[in-house]
């Protein structure tokens, strides 16, 4: 029987993985994947808590909205990355270093 702690452990692992990806990877697309991991870990949490802990349907609503808004954010983010790539011919995060102190 899969219970609440298993889900929480999985989502926490996803969260840590997302943070690790963002910190370690230098590829902008990979960093955006890390953001998706974090958002999905939160969505999973909401769904799991609704199912096992408090039967409040609002949690499912939150999950749905997170999925929708993550898609919108990814769309805008990717459009900006494409623009950046067309100008700079690179998607390495260290090349985005023109604006600095």
């Amino acid at each position: 029987m899969i219970s609440l702690p298993s889900y929480l452990f999985l989502s926490f692992a996803l969260f840590i993985a997302g943070i690790a990806v963002m910190v370690a990877r230098k590829n902008i697309i990979a960093i955006m994947l890390g953001i998706e991991l974090i958002l999905n870990s939160a969505a999973l949490n909401f769904a799991a808590y609704t199912r096992f802990a408090n039967d409040n349907i609002d949690g499912h609503l939150m999950s749905l909205f997170i999925i929708v808004i993550a898609a919108a954010e990814a769309a805008v983010g990717l459009a900006i990355v494409i623009r950046f790539f067309q100008i700079k011919e690179t998607i390495h995060i260290d090349d985005a270093a023109q604006l600095q102190n």
Binding site: S11, A42, A43
Partner: peptide, 25 residues
């Protein structure tokens, strides 16, 4: 570049906020 930095930082922070909110829920 400004847009890129904004969207990366913004995505990360809203994800972190949601993770906190999910546990509060």
């Amino acid at each position: 570049e400004a847009g890129l930095k904004y969207s990366l930082y913004g995505g990360i922070s809203s994800g972190i906020m949601l993770f906190g909110l999910s546990h509060i829920f």
